[in-house]
Design a protein around this nucleic acid. Structure first.
Lengths: 221, 221, 221, 221
DNA sequence: CATGAATGAGGGTTCATTCAT
DNA sequence: AATGAATGAACCCTCATTCAT
């Protein structure tokens, strides 16, 4: 019933798509974009498929030709961003001459990415924070896997950094969780009131909370 | 329409209630207890009033004789705990010979309270973290006010502690937000897997992340 | 279940009632009075038994000890007035030295009675006009019987008046229906706007519409 | 939410509608027709939307795709006929060589129209007679406006007729109200028992009640 | 492919009525 | 006799989903 492109999006080459296929891709995009706004504003349960169809300027039937059901549409939306986020954070953690720089990169990347897709962040956080009951457990599992992978990578950074004596001797997993958590808190402050706060200016603050002793040596972000 | 007890709960003496009234109180409690479980498991939108009625072993009409509507029931549930949490946290922050002890009290109280009402915590966090779109803004406002009050009190502790040189010279509001955020993260870990983690054992870890320099002097919680 | 006084109200002597019984009568009255207001304001379907109980300052259980159900309460209310109206109209039609006077008496009595129980009139008209779907047919039958009896008596007056040459030679039943109908129309105008209209002043108008030729001979109402 | 045809019914040409739209029109009609029967039989409050859906042989959802809610369906029903009635009565009052003929036209048109939509008449009368408590005042206002407009036009006829000496010198507004009222009474008799009465044969009777003196000159309806 | 009319299960809520106290 | 807590059938309405065109 649902006609899914066989080839995965990441490997397909744009040039190989027929005009028809390209059009369809564009329509899919338009639907997802309409959906983001609505879900971010009102939450999963307070948005109807008709609403999405209307905003996307398609018939509902069309929506259902792209997504098996409402849940699948929501999941596609969240996962799309979750993957994007995940990739960007992985890159950030991979680059940088030492653990310290990697972590700063990580914090910056997080801010950068959230700034772009500010609308989806609320949804994303709701999912990763484990406080989402949007619906079945299914989505959680997949999205959390990505989140946990990030935490794992962060943990590794902390581990090696601790060995070098860069950080306090604390279970690196807890350090990772804490850093993630604190940066989320700052992002939420930022989301709540973009005028008064500036997440990026507060990166040194976050760092200093964590690693006070090194603050003086290298605090200039 | 909704028959509410005349006297406020906080001031009434149990002995002054008639048997009828005491029964009604008990029934209200039973309904709330049934509702907690369901809401915590499935979230606001995936629980029906009929379901609650059935679990509570009452007719739906009875539910509606206690709560004007579903939202009111949910709000009563959340606010009940929010107030309880708030009170306990305020007490914790008020007791203790210095800022340091107050903060440890705070972290312990948080764990203590969450342990009791572990089911409601997910709901509570969903609300205070601003990632809830459960429904109207109304509830958010009231519950967040309580949360912000706690943050404010915590901020004050950090401020005076910083003056005494107990903590690093960082904007005390950010310290407060961060501590709250980190403790939530640890609580969530704990919630996710009670067997592997122990929130209470990690209080020193949280402290040490924040205040490394003082760790040696007084790390024994 | 329903405890009804055996003796009919019309024949029982007040002095034979115990205090208990008198009290109960008074309570019944209070309930009916509360109900009139509500029904007249909002109609049968938009008034709840709880509402009536509250307005009458009784428990609902008490209401049900007087009236088998909502319908019975409504019927008791309507019939009480219908009987009162009927009796008064019969008296009016019986008194007066000739047909002309009887008819004027009738029109006055109608106004008099409606003035007293203005609230119930809307209900009464709704029932007698055949445009009521309040509920089952049952009530209609009984109340219309009374109404038709009045029409019959009126018809008789017209018949004998016509023989004497007092009125035009028109089927007296139609004259009766028409007079009833016109007086209702004037009463409704009056109900709609008591300030601008005065039913009583318009009695001669009604008469003159019907019996123009005799107007000059005896127009002083 | 409610999908309404763009073009207004009065101006659209049947040929310009697509088959889809024509089908939808037909369905709307079927629903309204099912609803008339039920409402006329049992009254607004005693008919459920499920009942209407079942009788119309549609899903309830379909009903709601045409009418925002039960009240709107009822109102659409009543207003449709009220407008039809109003138009027909206006035409009747406009045609005829003198006031007398206009009034006879009016009485005939009333009978004609009521004969067609005999089921809706009870509803219509309930609404225009001010004895309806069906629900909100809203509907009343709109429908009564139409009714009052008719009365106004009738009043004008009586006024000019009175000037010419055609009618008795009575406040023409009262004449209008009375004529309307009497014709309703005859219609109600007719409704109550079609076999015994014939509204149309009674038009001269109504006329003669009103204008006895002219009866002989022109009584042939 | 795209559409949108049609569907109906299911949800929130009301209220007449019962019955133990 | 009087009460009012409890009940649950029944109501109005929404919305995810299907399918004929």
């Amino acid at each position: 019933m649902i006609r899914k492109r066989k080839s995965s999006m990441s490997t397909q080459q744009a040039t190989k798509l027929t005009r028809r296929q390209r059009e369809r891709q564009r329509h899919r995009r338009e639907i997802l974009d309409a959906a983001i706004d609505l879900f971010a504003q009102k939450g999963f349960h307070n948005v109807s498929m008709h609403e999405i169809a209307e905003k996307a300027e398609f018939g509902i039937g069309t929506i259902y030709s792209f997504f098996e059901n409402k849940e699948a549409l929501y999941k596609a939306l969240i996962m799309e961003y979750a993957e994007k986020f995940h990739t960007a954070l992985c890159h950030a953690l991979a680059e940088g001459k030492d653990e310290f720089e990697k972590i700063i990169n990580f914090l910056r990347a997080k801010g950068e990415i959230f700034k772009e897709g500010i609308k989806i962040v609320r949804l994303y956080l709701a999912e990763t924070r484990g406080v989402s009951f949007s619906f079945k457990e299914g989505l959680d599992a997949e999205i959390r896997e990505l989140h946990e992978d990030t935490i794992k990578r962060l943990t590794r950074i902390f581990k090696s950094g601790t060995k070098k004596g860069l950080f306090a001797k604390i279970n690196p997993y807890y350090l990772a969780v804490s850093l993630d958590s604190i940066s989320n808190a700052f992002l939420l402050c930022w989301l709540g009131d973009t005028s008064k706060h500036d997440y990026f200016k507060n990166i040194p603050v976050m760092i200093s909370i964590f690693f006070e002793r090194v603050k003086l040596e290298r605090g200039k972000p």
